[in-house]
């Protein structure tokens, strides 16, 4: 195991019975001058410790909004969210967040970009530096510690953003279409790495995507959402093993069945993935 000592959760975390994220009756409306849009309507979801939940849905189904509400970045119109039993009111500090765009600081090298997390939190420098080196190795960024973001490919930039999100060992990682801007091949590679990072760190992950393949490959539970107003249509648990090799998983009948089901739920027009 790579860096098992630091990456492993403390044993009692796994035995927690209550859900780590609890979303209840969540509704979010956006008002413009003339009209009112309902982005999310009565969404309830609970995520258990160590789960990898993917949220699949077409563009504009409010899935990103939901993630931001969970992170406390956007207030809910109705309903409630609680993380580890605490109601969410304002930005959550115990989570890690990764966006579709890597949102790196262009004047900082890879390592310093990762360490931004530590500086902002006032973490212990030595500990943070050691942890950053571990993550750099874990994500295959070794040798690029001092490279500036514009010298990196899109996939590598996302790895840096991922390392930054994981630096403070968050229990929960929220990811908003983190691989949406990558080419298909890089995306597959990143998916394989994501699966490995999840298994090795035991982090609870909530990932939003509009790719059916990504949703089924990564999630041990897949939440399918409908277009505006965003509602949960169905939750699938294909029962694939935690460790997934890409090729064989694609051939797995459980994978095919889940993908097919999601495509039907999202409507034929969305089945381009």
């Amino acid at each position: 195991m790579i860096g098992a000592s630091v990456l492993d959760r403390e044993p009692d975390a796994h035995t927690t019975t209550s859900p780590i994220i609890e979303v209840e009756g969540l509704t979010r409306r956006f008002r413009s001058k003339r009209s009112e849009t309902v982005a999310l309507h009565d969404v309830s979801l609970s995520v258990n410790q160590g789960e990898f939940v993917t949220i699949a849905g077409p563009s504009g189904c409010g899935k990103s909004t939901m993630l931001k509400i969970i992170a406390g970045l956007v207030p809910a119109s109705e309903g409630s969210v609680s993380i580890m039993g605490e109601p969410v009111r304002g930005p959550q500090k115990q989570i890690g967040f990764a966006f579709q765009r890597s949102a790196l600081l262009e004047w900082r090298g890879v390592r310093k970009n990762i360490l931004l997390q530590a500086e902002m939190r006032g973490m212990d420098r030595k500990h943070a530096a050691a942890r950053a080196d571990e993550l750099i190795e874990l994500t295959g960024l070794t040798g690029f510690e001092r490279a500036l973001p514009h010298e990196l490919s899109g996939g590598m930039q996302q790895r840096v953003a991922l390392c930054r999100a994981l630096l403070h060992e968050p229990r929960i990682l929220l990811m908003d279409e983190p691989f949406g801007a990558l080419d298909a091949l890089t995306r597959e590679q990143m998916n394989v790495e994501m699966n490995r990072i999840w298994r090795e760190t035991g982090t609870t992950i909530l990932l939003v995507t509009h790719s059916v393949a990504e949703a089924v490959y990564l999630g041990n539970r897949i939440v399918v959402m409908s277009p505006r107003p965003g509602q949960i249509v169905e939750t699938l648990e294909p029962g694939l093993p935690a460790e997934r090799e890409y090729g064989p998983t694609m051939q797995d009948p459980r994978f095919a069945a889940a993908s097919e089901r999601i495509r039907i739920l999202l409507g034929a027009s969305q089945s381009h993935d």
Partner: peptide, 23 residues
């Protein structure tokens, strides 16, 4: 674990795409 994940880690920076060569 390292054995099984080695191709992903070692291969990724190089085999990424054109942009990594510029780096």
């Amino acid at each position: 674990a390292p054995q099984q994940t080695a191709p992903g880690r070692a291969g990724s920076p190089q085999a990424q795409d054109g942009a990594s060569t510029t780096a």
